[in-house]
Design a binder for these strands. Structure first.
Lengths: 175, 175
DNA sequence: ACACTGTTGTAGCGCTTGCTACACGAGCCG
DNA sequence: CGGCTCGTGTAGCAAGCGCTACAACAGTGT
């Protein structure tokens, strides 16, 4: 059953590429189909409806992001300040930035009541938090990981509205 | 010239109410017109096109937010930690939250290349930063105001995806 | 050879989007 | 009074949206 599961996997990469490059708001069925080399008709053959498709693509993107993050992880636990500056640099890397853009869009949709986005957004966020905690050398890892994440997402937000200078000022001395 | 400028002012309040209550993504011309007690036809008589309308509404919202913030300002400058917890509480107040939701949506649109939203988002952000700085008692007000803002926007982001618990953990001890 | 099942293209539905053409009344100016 | 501009309603446009009905094809089992 659910025979098209294989076909899904084959096109999810291309769908993810398109969403990362153009954002969720520019990801209606026809552009997505074009990017995947198929038709909107087929997209809805593989996926029950658009919600399921979006959920699958976002999960695929999240999975890719985890892989990317594993590559960017510190080889050994670092104290708060060092880890913060390391991760802040990683997040503004051009390879990482598209993921943050989509993450921001998910957060926005989630705040506006989209249940699917909310669920996926939280899952991604929790994974991110754990990933950070694992790299932290701290007496109070839960608190420091939370502080780390709040700060990092704050920089994502501010950079989105062209206030990257404020982020740098905030991080230059003391985390 | 620009005769309809008065008419604009009369409906901007209602338009702002609608955007704050329903978000930008649910603010196409016809719902907006209904909320303002007029027609989409008239909206485009008062404003050149939708971009100009959105810009005007967002500026109006920003202006309202400034007023709201003045009411929430600390009576005298506070040290970093005290100000942070005070403002964090203010931002999650139900009266303030809709503004943060819209702000988040603006940031998301800005990150996806919308020039108008980018411009307005940065203006709001800079205003916010200055407002925070004015309330800060610090030897390094620029740096601390930047840190304050990064942290506060981080909590807005995380709360949007249902991670308010992480925000509380991050702020409970030490800012 | 036949029927059946899974896959795909074509075409289109009903709806929303931003925006506009056109007509009609109200008020002002000569 | 006659015309003219300003404001507004009605109606509709082309494009895009998610989604679907239908037909045709391919492959397989009998």
């Amino acid at each position: 059953m659910t025979i098209p599961e294989d076909k899904r996997a084959l096109i999810l990469d291309k769908l993810a590429d398109h969403v990362l490059a153009n954002g969720l708001s520019a990801s209606s069925l026809r552009p997505l189909a074009k990017a995947a080399g198929t038709s909107d008709r087929m997209l809805l053959y593989y996926f029950a409806d658009k919600g399921e498709l979006v959920a699958a693509v976002l999960q695929h993107i999240a999975h890719r992001m985890v892989t990317l993050m594993e590559g960017a992880a510190a080889p050994e636990p670092l104290p708060y300040d060092a880890l913060l500056s390391r991760l802040s640099a990683a997040l503004s890397d051009p390879g990482f930035a598209p993921y943050m853009r989509v993450f921001l869009e998910v957060a926005s949709g989630s705040a506006n009541g989209d249940a699917t986005l909310s669920q996926i957004g939280e899952a991604i966020g929790r994974g991110f938090l754990d990933w950070g905690k694992a790299q932290l050398k701290s007496d109070t890892p839960d608190i420091d990981a939370a502080r780390l994440m709040v700060t990092l997402e704050g920089t994502v937000f501010l950079r989105a509205i062209g206030m990257g200078d404020v982020c740098e000022r905030a991080l230059r001395l003391k985390g």
